[in-house]
Structures are given as C-alpha cells and as structure tokens.
C-alpha cells in the first residue's frame, strides 16, 4: 500500500488511471451488449410462423416509410408484389432499412440476421406474387458458362457497372456499385428485382440460365485476379494516367535530381 501511495504522484499516474477507467467502462459495455444480444436471439427463435414474425418486424422497422401494411407512403414505395427476392436483397445487403434519405440506399452491414430476413421476406411475399428467392441450383457458379455470361454482362450490365464490374457513376449522385464481393444470391436477386435505379431483367429478358452464366462470369473474373500486376482499381485509363503522372514521373524526377546533384 505504501508503494502504491508513493507512485500516486508519478507523472504517468493520471494516464494509468485514465486507461484503467476506459478499460473498465469498455468491458462493462461489451458485457451488457452481449447480454441484450442474447435476449434478442431468444425472442426470434421463439417465433410461431415466419409471416407473423415478419409482419411484426415490418411494423417495427419498415412501416414508417412503407406504410403499416406495405401499401407505400410518400417516403417509400409500396412493397405489394415486389416478392421475397427484393426483400432478401435489400435487407440482406443492409440497404434497407435505409440509414438516411439520399439519392439511393447504400449497402452497409446487414441489420437483421438470416432468420429475421427470411421472416420479413415471407411476410412481403404473402402480400402479392413476386420474384422468389432463387434456389441453390440457379446460383451454382460451377454450372454456368463464363464466356456466355461475359457477353450477356457486356450487353446488359457493363454500361453502368463497368466491363470489369468495377462500378460506375449515374446521374445526380446515384451510382452502380462494384460487384466484387457480392454474393451469388444477391447478384441474381438484383437482376430479378431491379433494386434502386437498376432495371428489372426478368426471366424472358435474361433467362435463369443466363443469369447463372453472368454469376459464373463475375465469380470467374473475381477469382482470376488481375493478370499482369496490380489492377489499379479496374477503373481504366484514368487510373493508369494518374499513376503515370504521379508514381511514374515521380520516380523519374527523383532519378533526374540524383543524376544532376553534385557538391557545388
């Protein structure tokens, strides 16, 4: 105890005390958080039917903009007939519930777990017929044709998403996101339901087999990586030009200065 009181006036005492306080607060907060998380998991597993639970979730989280029975309001469209695939995409990629109003909903970490998403999907699907969540068979990238998928992609998707699926700009702050890292299911659902500004590519426009080919193409180029070195973001000549003007000329100038330097 005497040793402790001696160190009381040490210059680092305040820092140590602060660190200790932060550590205690942080651990308590984490503990409290995990307790409430466990509670939430308990309630979902105790659901009766998916539709009923989905409706509850809907009323609590979505009805402000989409209306109490998904009929739509001035702030959000009607969801009757959008189908389970639309809900699975929008909620599964974190775009819904929206963080804020803006030119378009942004992807973010999903707010609901898989069970909750399927309950929400079940509820919205029960309101009217729409595209269903695709089955495993339709998403199996190993069964598709990458070359044909590439052709379909270039004709239908590249004008917004870029030929290498790097994403691109649309008007007034809207944009087509990069498709790198997007799951097979979400790619399929996006084509089937046309989220945000994306057009709907229905089954007569791009058949389910062709959709799978597109998925195969995207997964193949993603797995291939970039031949010939770092891809510089797959953004095309602008990135290359920027690189040559900064790194390329920068290295050259460093050498010219070295070559012409001499003790004067």
């Amino acid at each position: 105890m005497k040793a402790l009181s001696k160190k009381r006036r040490h210059p680092l005492a305040a820092v140590a005390l602060l660190l200790f306080g932060l550590l205690v607060t942080g651990s308590l907060y984490t503990a409290a958080g995990s307790v409430s998380e466990a509670k939430a998991a308990d309630t979902t597993s105790a659901s009766v039917t998916d539709v009923e639970e989905g409706q509850k979730l809907f009323v609590a989280n979505c009805a402000t903009c989409h209306g109490m029975s998904a009929e739509g309001t001035a702030d959000g469209p009607s969801l009757i007939g959008v189908g389970a695939a639309a809900v699975d995409f929008q909620v599964g990629t974190g775009r819904m519930p929206m963080q804020m109003q803006g030119p378009q909903a942004q992807a973010k970490p999903a707010q609901f777990d898989d069970d909750q998403i399927s309950q929400l999907s079940a509820y919205v699907a029960s309101l009217g017929a729409g595209p269903a969540i695709p089955d495993e068979e339709a998403l199996d990238a190993s069964k598709g044709d990458a070359a044909h998928g590439g052709t379909v992609f270039r004709v239908n998707c590249a004008m917004c998403h870029n030929a290498a699926a790097g994403g691109g700009a649309l008007t007034r702050g809207k944009f087509a996101p990069t498709l790198a890292g997007v799951s097979e299911k979400h790619i399929y659902e996006a084509m089937a339901t046309g989220p945000q500004n994306m057009p709907v590519f229905n089954d007569s426009n791009i058949t389910p087999d062709e959709k799978r080919d597109v998925i195969t193409f995207l997964k193949t180029i993603e797995a291939n990586g970039s031949a010939g070195g770092a891809a510089l973001g797959n953004l095309g000549p602008v990135a290359e030009g920027l690189f040559v003007w900064t790194a390329g000329l920068g290295i050259i100038i460093a050498f010219t200065i070295w070559l012409t330097s001499r003790p004067s």
């Binding site: 590439g150 052709t151 270039r154 004709v155 590249a158 004008m159 917004c160 998403h161 870029n162 030929a163 290498a164 790097g166 994403g167 691109g168 700009a169 087509a176 953004l235 095309g236 000549p237 602008v238 290359e240 030009g241 920027l242 040559v244 003007w245």
Partner: peptide, 17 residues
C-alpha cells in the same frame, strides 16, 4: 473489356490520358 461490338458501351470508358 471484351471484343468490340457496337452495341455495348461500358461505364468508365475513357481514352488514354
């Protein structure tokens, strides 16, 4: 980018700098 075909125009189409 794929082979040229007059119908598709990719996003991010720019010339060299």
């Amino acid at each position: 980018y794929g082979p040229y075909d007059p119908s598709p125009v990719s996003a991010g189409t720019q010339p060299d700098w």
